[in-house]
C-alpha cells in the first residue's frame, strides 16, 4: 500500500490488554491544573520500568469540569489492577495534592473501584471531611493552601496498550517533523494517550536482551547506525526511525489514533522525507490485539 508516495508496510502493531482509568485534575488556573497533570504523568512512559503509562488526554474547559475551574484529563494504564491502584494513589497524593489549588476527580465510572480519596483522606489526620453528592463521595482534606478536594474513588476499565507505528525517514529532522505532525493530529483523538515524551519514542525497544537482567533492549534492526552490522530493516537511505506508541480505552480508539497519525504523516508526501511506515509486533504470539496498518488505513 502506498499513500501519497509513502509506503505502508503489510504488517501489524501488536497490543496488550491493560487496566486503565481517567482522572480529572482541576486548579485555580490553567497553569496549575497543567502543572499538577504534568507532574502526575512524569516518569511513566513505559511499564517496563515505570510501572504505569500515563498521558494528558486533553485540556478541559471550565464548563467541562466538576468545579468550573480549568482542568486536565489524564489517562493512566497499568498491567494489573493492583499496579494501577498503586500508581493512581501515589501519584494523586504526591503530584496532585501537593500542587497548589488543585482538586482531583474520577474521569470515568465503572463497577471496579480504585481507592483515591478513600485512602488519601488520612492525610487529614482526623480533620478530613466527607461530602456525598449525587451518588459520589468526596473527601475534603484541610491542607496548607486551603483544602484539597478528592473524589472517594477512581474507577478502572479495561484498556489496551502498545498500539504503535514507526516512521522511517531520510533524516532525523524529517522523522521528527513527521512525528510532531502525527502527534498533533492524534492528540485530537479522544480516549487515547501517547505515553512517551512528547508522544514520540526515539529509542524503540525489542523484547529481551543479551543481558539476562533486561527484559527489553534496543531494536537494532531499526537502528540506522547498525545498518552494516546486524540484520537490518532499513533501506540505505533511511537515517532515522521514530515510533509512536498509543494506549487507548478500546481497539477502535487506538485504530482511530493510528489512522489520524499516519494520515498526517502521509499528507507530507515524499518531499517530507518519510520513506516508509511500519509497525512493531512480536509475530502475533504475545498480544491479542493486532492492528494491521493496511486495515487501519483502508
Amino acid at each position: 500500500m502506498i499513500i501519497n508516495g509513502i509506503q505502508i508496510d503489510d504488517t501489524f502493531a501488536e497490543a496488550f490488554p491493560m487496566r486503565a482509568t481517567r482522572l480529572i485534575i482541576t486548579g485555580d488556573t490553567k497553569r496549575w491544573a497543567f502543572t499538577a497533570a504534568n507532574s502526575m504523568i512524569g516518569f511513566s512512559t513505559s511499564v517496563i520500568a515505570c510501572g504505569v503509562e500515563t498521558g494528558i488526554e486533553r485540556q478541559l474547559k471550565m464548563n467541562e469540569t466538576p468545579d468550573s475551574r480549568p482542568g486536565m484529563s489524564v489517562l493512566l494504564f497499568a498491567m494489573s489492577s493492583k499496579e494501577l491502584a498503586k500508581h493512581v494513589l501515589t501519584r494523586t497524593g504526591q503530584c496532585v495534592m501537593t500542587t497548589p489549588t488543585t482538586a482531583c476527580y474520577a474521569g470515568l465510572y465503572s463497577d471496579k473501584k480504585i481507592k483515591l480519596g478513600g485512602a488519601l483522606r488520612y492525610f487529614g489526620d482526623g480533620y478530613q471531611l466527607s461530602k456525598q453528592l449525587g451518588g459520589k463521595r468526596y473527601w475534603r482534606i484541610p491542607i496548607m493552601d486551603g483544602e484539597f478536594l478528592v473524589e472517594e474513588y477512581a474507577y478502572q476499565v479495561p484498556g489496551i496498550g502498545g498500539g504503535n507505528f514507526l516512521i522511517l525517514a531520510k533524516s532525523r529532522g524529517m522523522a521528527l517533523r513527521a512525528s510532531e505532525r502525527a502527534i498533533k493530529a492524534m492528540s485530537k483523538v479522544p480516549n487515547v494517550i501517547m505515553p512517551f515524551p512528547g508522544g514520540v519514542v526515539g529509542s524503540g525497544s525489542k523484547v529481551g536482551s543479551k543481558y539476562k537482567a533486561l527484559s527489553a533492549s534496543t531494536n537494532e534492526a531499526f537502528c540506522p547506525t547498525l545498518k552494516g552490522l546486524t540484520h537490518t530493516e532499513l533501506s540505505p537511505d533511511t537515517e532515522s526511525v521514530m515510533e509512536i506508541v498509543i494506549d487507548g480505552l478500546s481497539e477502535a480508539d487506538i485504530a482511530a489514533a493510528m489512522r489520524a497519525g499516519i494520515e498526517a504523516v502521509c499528507e507530507l508526501g515524499p518531499a517530507g522525507g518519510v520513506t516508509r511506515i511500519t509497525a512493531g509486533n512480536y509475530g502475533g504470539k504475545l498480544g491479542p490485539y493486532h492492528f494491521h496498518l493496511r486495515d487501519v488505513m483502508k
Partner: peptide, 10 residues
C-alpha cells in the same frame, strides 16, 4: 570486514 551504516547527524 567493515560494513556501511549510512550517514547520520548525531
Amino acid at each position: 570486514t567493515f560494513n556501511d551504516c549510512g550517514s547520520h547527524a548525531l
